[in-house]
């Protein structure tokens, strides 16, 4: 099938930690059919970088993150981690890689076994790898302290005695205790109140600096991804729309879908009344069972032409380091207001 390109991949060298190429993930959908959750996605992550993966439900962002960990292994494509092709690994060889890639999930409370003590939950990974007890205890205490929990006060307690934010701290400690190089964070703050969300985002930044981490940060929240990421990949219905630095993506979005996403975020402040005008017929995500041909965004795109229905757009560089997979990207910097109107966006 037609790809969506790899123009946005940077040259692979010793600074490259992750390189995913032409990733395809299919799930069985009954009656012998398959639904393609991820359709030919490529991206790379440099050491020490935070890559944000953003999109709405069903865009394949979580599936992409899990495929990176081979949970499950992708249907097709390549996942190279520190130069090692993960899709070739099986059994013990794959198990040996796993401590180097850890994951943090959305719901911190259900991610923790409520019958076990915090110390044991965090120590589990070290115990599996057969570290001596003294070392386990000191490592667990150190990492609990690092995430802002007092080891002597919390170690013997159980998860239900903690708030959502504190449970997420425990989950972060559990991920960090194995000294991973890459942490895949799948909506880690989506279940939290904004004041707690701020604590956890700050904590992730601190942990990244302290332990030299590389992060893949998956979220639906544009404001959050803009805050934490160096580089952002926007996904729609299993494909990449746009790749750019966080600052460039938010200030100069070039894909009509990125513009729609950014324009849909309600802003705080005066003079931002939601439009009273009757909006156009609602446009929602098409079924991933039967994705549109050509550019998958074309049924919702106000700029779509015939070529968008026929030809899958390839990513191409429109400004240095700014890539977009669109036949008609919004690159005219002089008329951002005009394009806003063309897209029917009331929110500035």
């Amino acid at each position: 099938m037609a790809g969506i390109g790899t123009a946005h991949l940077r040259d692979a060298d010793e600074g490259t930690l992750v390189r995913v190429e032409h990733l395809v993930v299919e799930y069985p959908a009954g009656q012998g059919r398959a639904v393609q959750a991820v359709s030919d996605v490529s991206f790379d992550i440099r050491r020490g970088e935070t890559l944000g993966l953003v999109g709405e439900s069903g865009c394949g962002k979580s599936t992409t993150g899990r495929a990176l960990l081979q949970l499950p292994a992708p249907t097709d494509g390549s996942v190279r981690f520190d130069g090692i092709e993960l899709t070739d690994l099986r059994g013990e060889a794959l198990r040996k890689i796993r401590p180097r890639i850890q994951m943090i999930f959305q719901d911190p409370i259900s991610s923790l076994n409520e019958t076990r003590k915090v110390h044991d939950l965090v120590a589990e990974g070290l115990r599996i790898w057969g570290h001596p007890k003294d070392e386990i205890d000191s490592r667990v205490d150190e990492v609990l302290d690092a995430v802002g929990l007092d080891p002597t006060a919390v170690g013997h307690r159980r998860p239900r005695q903690f708030s959502g934010g504190q449970c997420q701290r425990i989950c972060i400690a559990r991920a960090l205790v194995l000294e991973p190089e890459l942490v895949v964070c799948d909506e880690p703050v989506s279940a939290l109140d904004v004041s707690v969300q701020a604590q956890i985002l700050n904590l992730l930044e601190d942990m990244k600096a302290r332990y030299g981490l590389t992060l893949l940060f998956i979220t639906h929240d544009l404001s959050v991804v803009r805050n934490i990421s160096d580089r952002i990949v926007v996904m729609y219905l299993g494909r990449i729309c746009e790749v750019a630095s966080a600052d460039a993506l938010i200030s100069e979005p070039a894909h009509p879908y990125t513009q729609l996403l950014i324009g849909s975020v309600p802003r705080v402040g005066a003079d931002q009344r939601i439009g009273h005008t009757a909006s156009r017929a609602p446009s929602e995500l098409p079924s991933p069972m039967d994705p549109p041909a050509g550019c998958r965004f074309h049924p919702r795109c106000p700029l779509a032409q015939d070529i968008c229905r026929d030809e899958v757009p390839q990513t191409r560089e429109i400004r240095p380091g700014h890539f977009v997979a669109c036949h008609f990207p919004l690159v005219d910097d002089t008329a951002p207001d005009g394009t806003d109107q063309a897209l029917g966006m009331g929110v500035a």
């Binding site: 701020a198 803009r226 805050n227 630095s245």
Partner: peptide, 24 residues
Amino acid sequence: EALLSSIPRFDHPSHTRLLAIGGR
């Protein structure tokens, strides 16, 4: 004021430190 300051903003550059509200 604290609640508004804890929200990440589009007009702040990435990695801007957020003002979290301590405690519960």
